[in-house]
């Protein structure tokens, strides 16, 4: 789908975490992002949206969320648990 260039990682997460088939996963992510399912593969729309939501973008933008920071925001956006984020919270005694 294009990974973090579009919304591929987000749709993948719904498949991986909730066993959603493709149409359901796309519909879920589109709903959370308030876009259409076709928009999920639109590089221009998703670039702007990802930057706005600060969930990681394909190019290297100083100050933009990267790595764990981006995943923590994605977990909240999609209402899912991301293991590496939970491990970090535990280390920081933030509770999950």
């Amino acid at each position: 789908m294009g990974g973090i260039r579009t919304a591929g990682d987000l749709v993948a997460r719904m498949q991986l975490h909730r066993k959603m088939r493709l149409p359901e996963a796309k519909a879920y992510v589109a709903d959370r992002l308030k876009v259409s399912t076709v928009d999920l593969s639109d590089e221009v729309i998703m670039r702007e949206l990802r930057e706005e939501l600060d969930i990681g973008v394909i190019t290297s933008v100083p100050g933009a969320a990267k790595g764990l920071a981006a995943k923590a925001r994605i977990a909240r956006l999609l209402d899912i648990r991301v293991n590496s984020v939970d491990v970090l919270k535990e280390k920081m005694e933030l509770g999950s």
Partner: peptide, 9 residues
């Protein structure tokens, strides 16, 4: 790897 990547690993 998890520290710096965003996609599911």
């Amino acid at each position: 790897t998890l520290l710096g990547t965003i996609i599911p690993m």
